Simulated scan of single mutants.
Amino acid sequence: MNLKKLSEKLYAQVSEQLEETASIENSLEKFRSGLALVQKALAQLKIELSNNGFASQEEEIYFFKTGKPKIYSLLILITERYAIESSMPLLGKEKQVAHLESQLYFIDRFFRQNEFIFQYYRLGATDLDERYFTREGASKLAGFAEVPDVDPSFSTVSDYLFSKFMAYEKLQQSIRQEIEMRKGGEDAVHKNAFKDLKWTGDAVNMVELVYGVYETGQVNGGKISLSELMEFFGQAFQVNITGYFKRFADIKRRKSMSKTRYLDEMQQLVSKRIEDSDAWIPEDQRSRYRF
């Protein structure tokens, strides 16, 4: 297995395993369990790289720009979340909000300190990839803020920064949601208006639906991970879809005529609705309702 496929496989596995640790109530135990999972995946990547190397420069750029940072970002995210939770004031909503807002300031400061490469990350630029995401090119770079010494055989300066960008964007979003919840402002009220919406169908149907949304790149131009989409849909409709990889394996093992049973049912019912809605429109006026 090449490093691109291995990194994608490990990211998917670790994301699923981290979902399973979400039920651990002790924050320190949850932190240690999550950390161990990510470190194990990174160790596997390092061993594979040491044994086989890269097949091409294209593979090396993907590995340091996307493959490894997606996994390493999970380690950063776990660490930062634990640090924020463990230092959260126990009493006083205003103090807790102030604590969270200070974290947002810290994240924004990090983005501004690394403004140039952060914009490179946000824009999805590629023109400097050979300098930023190959070990040979990275050895000539200098001047980045807040970057620790890295293992030159397994890292580039930019892969570390991309990992932090990925982690901090997720952290930024979750902190803002926490602040809204604690303030109980207008946004929180609007969100609570839909709190009684629940998915009452089979959870496996939700998994099939989310895979369809993910594979067709309908959210954020396709620049969103499968685990993020699953988490969003699960929270929005209050349905437990943890272990979705196992559920997807069940979908693949279906022996019926179609494996995408739920999506096929949706397609048939929407088509029927279109046909039924056309039925009452006079033939000479139907063209007015076609888009």
Rank of each mutant, 00 (worst) to 15 (best):
L226Q: 08
L128D: 04
L75V: 03
G222W: 10
A279L: 13
M266R: 01
R261F: 11
G67E: 01
Q17E: 15
S158W: 05
Q238C: 04
D108P: 08
L171F: 04
F248N: 06
Y160D: 08
S50R: 09
T79C: 03
D151A: 11
M230P: 08
V270G: 12
R290E: 07
D151N: 13
E265H: 10
N52M: 08
S227E: 12
S227C: 04
Q17N: 15
K198V: 14
M166H: 08
L28Y: 06
F245T: 05
I251N: 07
S155W: 14
L141A: 01
Q218M: 15
D187H: 01
K246P: 06
Q173R: 09
G185W: 11
V38S: 03
L100D: 06
T79Q: 10
K191L: 14
K170P: 00
A125K: 03
G212C: 08
S87E: 03
D284L: 08
E80K: 14
S87Q: 15
K4Y: 11
S102L: 05
R32M: 05
G34Y: 06
Y82W: 02
Q17I: 07
A142R: 13
A167K: 03
Q177K: 10
I179G: 04
V219A: 03
L123M: 06
R286L: 01
L171V: 01
G143W: 10
V207R: 02
F64I: 13
Q113A: 09
K183C: 02
S256W: 08
L91S: 15
S73W: 00
N51R: 15
T134E: 12
Y120H: 04
N114T: 13
M257R: 13
E265G: 05
S56K: 13
S158R: 10
F233L: 04
A145P: 06
F144E: 04
F106V: 15
D276K: 15
K4H: 01
F106A: 14
F144H: 02
E25W: 09
V204D: 03
A236G: 00
S158D: 01
